[in-house]
């Protein structure tokens, strides 16, 4: 395992970024901050997919006037595109629900609102 550590710093960065996002989701009580945590989680997944598909010395997988060299993997990039669109959709829907909650109860604290208390 030890010889992998210098090469795996991007994956460790992904793990720490997703750890920050999970901390925000688990411990914050403001609903807007929870949505920010979910956005950071989506960014962490994007970073993981891009680093997963990187090949050493690779160029973009597009053949139009392509330079010399191997190409990076195309499937993780397509999955990244999917993840960006789905994150935007989910955040739009959640922000709408938070506006609904605020108009309905006058507060966006997850502990104080009666319907959201777990």
């Amino acid at each position: 395992m030890m010889q992998y550590i210098p090469y795996n710093i991007p994956f460790i960065a992904v793990a720490l970024l997703m750890g920050v996002a999970l901390f925000i989701i688990l411990f914050k009580r403001n609903l807007i901050k929870i949505i920010m945590g979910i956005a950071i989680l989506g960014a962490g997944v994007n970073l993981f997919l891009v680093t997963l598909g990187y090949r050493a010395g690779g160029v973009a997988p597009i053949y139009t006037v392509a330079p010399e060299g191997v190409m990076v993997l195309p499937v993780p990039q397509a999955l990244t595109l999917t993840n960006i669109v789905i994150t935007v959709s989910v955040i739009a829907l959640m922000l709408t629900m938070v506006m609904f909650t605020y108009r309905h109860m006058g507060d966006i604290d997850a502990k104080k609102s009666r319907l959201l208390r777990g």
Binding site: M1, I12, V14, L52, R55
Partner: peptide, 10 residues
């Protein structure tokens, strides 16, 4: 993150 393939050689 430590057990995955080395970065750059998937």
């Amino acid at each position: 993150a430590l057990l995955i393939h080395p970065f750059g050689y998937p």
